[in-house]
Design a protein around this nucleic acid. Structure first.
Length: 1092
RNA sequence: GGGCCUAUAGCUCAGUUGGUUAGAGCGUCCGCCUGAUAAGCGGGAGGUCAGUGGUUCAACUCCACUUAGGCCCA
């Protein structure tokens, strides 16, 4: 017996049951271990940062990953996949800081770094393991990754592999010290990551000042007019920048109550000037390059403190001149941008290029340093008004206004941030940029434009990677340095620490050395690792560790080898699994994981870390708005799954649109998946079991019929099925999940349920078991089992439920199925010999014709239940007629018509024909004459068409030239049939005879009666197999003759043993006998039925 | 400011190398069917393919610009 499936319809329960079963039968690990290790498909899990709860957006990228891995498993690959958790980094620190109520970075130091890091570590493990956490979500959504063997980035083994990699970079001379302009909070005294900066953008009012820089070496006094919103940075001005290609003008500017002055600025920004102006000179930005000006202040040129610095004198001598750079815009200001290298990223870059000095004028608390004597000790922002005043007095302030713009503030303490040059360590990725660009071209990006565009452009424009962070919870930077910064030592394993000396808490040597046993159980995190020091080989004291930790992205980018503790262990596994065949993450990882994987592994191993990548876009709410906690429109994945089942969500995510388009999360779409697709499928299965169980059919027990010998309808659906299998495999191999899902869904709903089952129902319920019925059962069964396999990678629960329901009864019978789970099965392979394109075409034509006939019935107001005599189908030739004859029965049955008349176009006078140009062929041949030719062809008369057919061509004069139309260049279709009701679509034309003879009328009435009796059976709650006796009264003459004429038809349809023309005795109106009143064509009658 | 993506029916999306009347589902209106039945089927209405210009015999499709939205980076 096949089990009922409808009873356990609640998706959540259905899935929980399967989850238990998978666990019980150990299905996931078997799905891996049952595949041979010689056939590996390598997948890398991009580790989510476990600083909070999983969200619905994690479900989409994990569905993609899971789907591909399950698919490849079904294709026979061994797909080992370790889970992974990203555990270090600022997001984790921030969460703990919030929890502990910290306001400043030094709160952490006071609290104790050891203790703080312990809290961080605890929290990530809690986020992984707790209820509603990452493991629970992974399991519930059926994301199959091996969690017990998960790689965790904060474990000593993992960190050691990361150290190994960093040492490789270090040894190759790819790591260097530099400055990095970073957003910096002067109160917290810490640099902020871009992620933190994004938290604190607010509208702010700032000064907007136009400053005059006096040009040197001119006869007349002349000024460069520059603009800034940060007057305090003017103290460290070293240059002015112009755009090389923009036109700059010198003007005489006259303002009210002021003497006229000569100013230089960009032409497009002239409207910024007050008063009137007259252009006296014009030049390109590039022509201004090198011009000198007098500095606003003299601190930079006179400060002894600065002049002591090596090379400073030479550098400052080159300063205070115009340079040209394309980053300058004419959107704001004057087109002349003042340069303060320590306080702006572009400024810094430009200053490096021209060799200007980097002058830091404020200290770490944001106060002016002593050498800026006039403002010394002032907080940078507070100095703004005074600076502007002083400039005004000196006559160097053109004007000052106030602007409102967005400016970043510290998310912790709300101080305005400043951009500040910080010491930082870099990886010189620019050294092998070309290789990164080249190797990227071998990666298959889905969609390709991200690889070429977004990612490719980023690589071509690559800057060195700043990898050090002045933070606590992270992989310690494994470089030890002498106090003078001249001696460096990179460490690539814990064994390399052996011999280093332990320092005490105050940094004093203890004489105790790091031993072999220390190395074995070493936890490298701060602060312990900072207590290790190496004796200088040059006798300059001790080398101490650079106290920074590294960018977390270096951690996750190291996972291909670090997950296996390579090269210390597992060399073989690493080599077998590198590079990954496939990865997938969200589009936000372009500059994140996608990049770090590529940058690190290309350097270390000379090839990219992955071959195929699917990129997914965001999940938005149903209005298309971004989900965010502040808007309150986030979706809790556990709640969503409990409500709809995860299959529904997975299917919707994959089917609705391609992964790389933003996806709207809309509950009504999920309901539709369940209703349209899943319940149709369950219904189809329900239909199958209803009759299979009645007939005692079990697939594989009796001899299977050959597909080629089954009826037209069966061969058709099997052809469609095998076409589907063929297409799905190709699409899935090309990582196009969406196309496969759409095809599977379309097949299940349209082809299988709405056509095959609907047209074949009769075969299932009629009579005893016979070859036709056997074929029908086998065909439907084969379709359902194949669908369960095709959909298994995307909707793993329903697919398995369906599969197990179908296969359990026949497990003993055929012995050929592994009914423990569909996920242990192989993906179906298409039997090409079953694919019959001609058959698919003629069935499609049958569907079109049926649709046309229904359309005409609608127009003529004739119900489908009323039989009609004939329809007429014009065909172009004998062959088309032969094809159509094969599906004629199906059409007639569907539209309730007695016979088809086939007519060849040419043979009939009543059929009016029309010619249509084949635009593709003729367009290429005729070019400009195409328009006229197609108009002429549309006007072809019947005689002309006949001539064309007979001689195989026809000539038309068009604009004086002769045009010859040959066979194939026009298409001839039937357009109308005189005297008939006609309808046409897509080149198919059908005519219907709507005359209803008395005989047809009687048959119609008999069918109406059958319908009423069936309704009564239903209302009376009779079993489908119950035999009955029928009583009917009153009966008109017409109805009586209808019944007499079609008695056997009626009896057969309703399983009636007897039919009498009077009422049966009905006791209480319930059960048997049953009686009810009804109408046929306005004629009232009472039907009573009883079981016999 | 730079890069990438998107714009087709009320909504969600197709539209394959440019080619004949731009499709589907949902929604809506009308009807049908009922031995898969708290289902199913058919039909109708609904589109200036964001806008402008260009290439072409022919543009939703190719090119340029514009507008709007999204993401990433400055």
């Amino acid at each position: 017996m096949y089990p009922e499936l409808r009873s356990s319809l609640a998706p959540d329960e259905r899935e929980q049951e399967i989850l238990r079963l998978w666990k019980e039968k150990d299905v996931f690990s078997r799905s891996v271990s049952e595949r041979t290790s010689g056939n590996i498909f390598s997948f890398y899990e991009g580790p989510p940062t476990v600083n909070g709860d999983p969200g619905i957006h994690h479900v989409i990228s994990r569905t993609i990953k899971d789907t591909i891995c399950r698919y490849k498993t079904m294709r026979g690959y061994r797909v080992e996949r370790k889970a992974g958790w990203d555990t270090h980094g600022l997001p984790v620190e921030i969460a703990i800081e919030k929890k502990l109520g910290f306001k400043h970075k030094h709160d952490i130091i006071e609290y104790g770094v050891a203790e703080f890091n312990a809290r961080c570590k605890e929290s990530v493990f809690e986020n992984i393991e707790r209820k509603g956490g990452w493991q629970a979500m992974t399991e519930r959504m059926a994301y199959w990754v091996d969690m017990p063997s998960a790689y965790i980035t904060c474990t000593p083994d993992y960190v050691e592999s990361v150290w190994w990699a960093l040492k490789k970079f270090f040894d190759a001379g790819k790591i260097y010290r530099g400055h990095k302009i970073q957003p910096y909070c002067p109160r917290c005294e810490t640099a902020l990551s871009s992620h933190e900066v994004a938290l604190g953008y607010r509208n702010a009012k700032d000064p907007s000042v136009f400053v005059k820089f006096k040009r040197k070496n001119t006869k007349e006094e002349e000024f460069f007019l520059a603009w800034t919103t940060t007057p305090w940075t003017l103290l460290s001005n070293v240059a002015l920048a112009v755009h090389p290609d923009v036109e700059y003008v010198t003007v005489i500017n006259k303002r009210k109550d002021k003497p006229a002055e000569r100013l230089v600025l960009a032409e497009p920004l002239l409207p910024k000037l007050d008063g009137e102006y007259e252009i006296i000179h014009r030049q390109k930005g590039s022509d201004l390059e090198g011009q000198e000006y007098e500095p606003l202040f003299d601190y930079l040129t006179t400060s002894e403190e600065l002049l002591k610095v090596p090379e400073y004198k030479e550098k400052i001598a080159k300063s205070f001149r115009i340079i040209a750079d394309t980053y300058v815009t004419t959107e704001d200001g004057t087109g002349i941008v003042h340069q303060a290298p320590a306080y702006g990223e572009d400024d810094y870059r430009v200053s490096l290029k021209y060799g200007f000095p980097l002058v830091v004028t404020v200290n770490e608390s944001g106060n002016f340093k002593p050498f800026i004597t006039r403002y010394a000790g002032k907080f940078f922002k507070d100095a703004d008004p005074e600076i502007m005043d002083d400039l005004k007095k000196a006559g160097l302030l053109y004007k000052k206004e106030t602007i409102e713009h967005t400016y970043p503030f510290c998310w912790r303490c709300e101080s305005p941030l400043l951009y500040y040059a910080r010491n930082s360590w870099y990886i010189r990725v620019t050294d092998y940029r070309d290789q990164l660009v080249e190797q990227n071209k071998t990666i298959h990006w889905h969609p390709p434009e991200i690889g070429e565009g977004r990612f490719g452009n980023w690589l071509e424009d690559l800057k060195d990677w700043g990898i050090s962070r002045e933070r606590f919870w992270g992989t310690p930077f494994p470089i030890w340095m002498s106090d003078d910064g001249l001696e460096l030592k990179g460490v690539g394993s814990y064994n390399e620490l052996i011999g280093a000396e332990w320092l005490d808490e105050n940094g004093k040597p203890t004489g105790r050395l790091f031993s072999e046993s220390d190395a074995k159980e070493f936890d490298p995190h701060k602060p312990l690792v900072d207590r290790l020091a190496f004796k200088s080989e040059k006798g300059s004291g001790y080398l101490k560790r650079v106290p920074d930790v590294i960018d977390v992205w270096f951690d996750s980018g190291s996972m291909p080898f670090a997950q296996y503790h390579y090269p210390f262990e597992n060399k073989e596994i690493f080599e077998k699994t590198f590079p990954a065949d496939f990865i997938s993450e969200g589009i936000d990882q372009t500059r994140g994981w996608f990049y770090t994987l590529h940058a690190i592994n290309t350097f270390l191993f000379g090839k990219p870390a992955y071959k195929n990548v699917i990129v997914n876009d965001l999940v938005l709410d149903k209005q298309g708005q971004k989900m965010s906690k502040s808007k309150g429109n986030t979706v809790n994945p556990f709640e969503a799954i409990a409500k709809f089942g995860v299959d529904t969500i997975r299917w919707n995510f994959m089917e609705a649109s391609v992964p790389w388009k933003p996806k709207l999360y809309n509950e009504s779409d999920l309901i539709d998946v369940e209703r349209k697709f899943f319940s149709t499928l369950i219904n189809t299965y329900g239909f199958f079991v209803l009759y299979a169980n009645i007939d005692g059919f079990t697939y594989g027990v009796e001899k299977r019929s050959k597909a080629a010998e089954r009826p037209e309808m069966d061969r058709w659906i099997l052809s469609k099925l095998n076409s589907l299998v063929k297409d799905c495999s190709a699409w899935m191999d090309g990582y196009d999940i969406t196309r496969a899902c759409r095809a599977i869904q379309d097949f299940s709903i349209e082809e299988l349920s709405n056509w095959y089952v609907r047209r074949s129902r009769r075969r299932f319920w009629k009579g005893e078991m016979n070859p036709d019925k056997q074929a029908a059962y086998e065909t439907l069964y084969e379709c359902l089992v194949t669908i369960s396999k095709l959909m298994a990678p995307v909707a793993p629960f329903l697919a398995d439920k369906l599969y197990q329901s179908l296969t359990t009864p026949s497990k003993s019978g055929s012995g050929n199925v592994n009914s423990d789970s569909v996920h242990l099965e192989f993906y179906p392979t298409a039997d090409e010999s079953v694919i019959d394109v001609a058959l698919e075409n003629r069935m499609h034509k049958a569907q079109v014709i049926s649709s046309l006939v229904r359309q005409m019935r609608e127009r003529a107001k004739i119900k489908v239940r009323q039989p009609l005599e004939r329809l007429l189908v014009p065909s172009a030739n004998r062959k088309d007629i032969e094809e159509l004859r094969k599906v004629e029965e199906i059409i007639l049955d569907e539209v309730n018509v007695k016979r088809v008349e086939h007519v060849e176009f040419g043979d009939s006078d009543v059929i009016k024909r029309k010619a249509k140009a084949n635009f593709k062929l003729l367009g290429a041949k005729l070019g400009k004459q195409m328009k006229n030719a197609s108009a002429r062809i549309a006007k072809m008369t019947d005689d002309e068409i006949r001539t064309f057919e007979q001689q195989g061509y026809i000539d038309f004069p068009v604009e004086g030239e002769n045009i010859r139309i040959e066979r194939g260049e026009i298409e001839i279709v039937a357009e109308d049939v005189e005297g008939w009701l006609v309808s046409s679509e897509g080149g198919v034309t059908v005519a219907l005879d709507t005359a209803i003879s008395e005989s047809l009328l009687l048959e119609g009435k008999a069918r109406e009666l059958v319908n009423r009796i069936q309704n009564a059976r239903k209302a009376a709650d009779f079993e489908v197999t119950d035999k009955i006796r029928i009583g009917i009264e009153p009966v008109s003459v017409l109805m009586r003759s209808a019944i007499e004429k079609h008695k056997s038809f009626i009896s057969e349809e309703t399983l009636a043993k007897e039919l009498v023309y009077n009422g049966l005795k009905v006791v209480d109106g319930k059960g048997s006998p049953w009686s009810e009143e009804t109408q046929i064509d306005d004629e009232p009658l009472t039907i009573s039925i009883e079981r016999v």
